[in-house]
């Protein structure tokens, strides 16, 4: 949590990205503590690995520093804080009727799980129950998940594809010269 707070304060975006990677690693650690090893692996690989790489790549294409705006406060800031606090309060209100942490008698742990624990070895095979469920019982979700990735790929391809981009760039620079470069104040910050 301290890491997240640090991310907010950090104006060097590169450092922020690095910290968010560390944040992912830490959460992965937490997941392991809570017995979710598969999730921890994935989080470490995807959250800490791939997404950090992507962000760094993006930064290299854009800019590294966040503009200093300690001086100009916007009404959104207050609003954002209020909304966040309010939502948090509502959510905490909602936890009041939840089963306690780690309660083996919680409905979630009693209802579907026993069958998975008992039968998945025979019905599916792999000793890792998570793998069994993922691949068979909830295989459709996994199929959907693959589609999500494919969708994102198409999206990125459409957005960053070469020809279209060049054409658009020329046309937009015709209409608006400011799209070519940032305001001067930012140039300095970039260096």
């Amino acid at each position: 949590m301290a890491v997240t707070l640090a991310i907010i304060r950090m104006r060097d975006l590169f450092a922020a990205v690095m910290l968010s990677g560390i944040f992912s690693l830490l959460s992965a650690g937490l997941f392991t503590v809570m017995d979710a090893v598969d999730v921890a692996f994935t989080e470490a690989a995807v959250g800490a690995g791939i997404s950090t790489v992507l962000m760094v790549a993006t930064l290299s294409l854009t800019r590294r520093r966040e503009r200093d705006r300690r001086l100009d406060r916007r009404p959104e800031d207050v609003l954002g804080l209020v909304v966040a606090l309010l939502t948090g309060a509502i959510l905490i209100y909602g936890t009041l009727d939840m089963p306690y942490y780690g309660d083996p008698e919680a409905p979630a742990n009693l209802y579907m799980v026993p069958r998975f624990l008992e039968d998945s070895l025979d019905e599916v095979g792999p000793p890792n129950i998570v793998t069994s469920i993922l691949a068979s019982y909830r295989g459709y979700d996994t199929f959907g998940e693959a589609t999500v990735v494919f969708t994102a790929a198409i999206g990125a391809f459409l957005l960053l594809g070469g020809a279209a981009r060049r054409r658009r760039q020329t046309s937009s620079s015709d209409s608006d010269p400011s799209s070519e470069g940032a305001p001067p104040a930012d140039r300095g910050a970039e260096a």
Partner: peptide
């Protein structure tokens, strides 16, 4: 521990 949330979250992470 309950494996179902783990399964769901693998998807959610992706």
């Amino acid at each position: 521990s309950n494996p179902v949330p783990h399964v769901l979250m693998l998807t959610a992470i992706v």
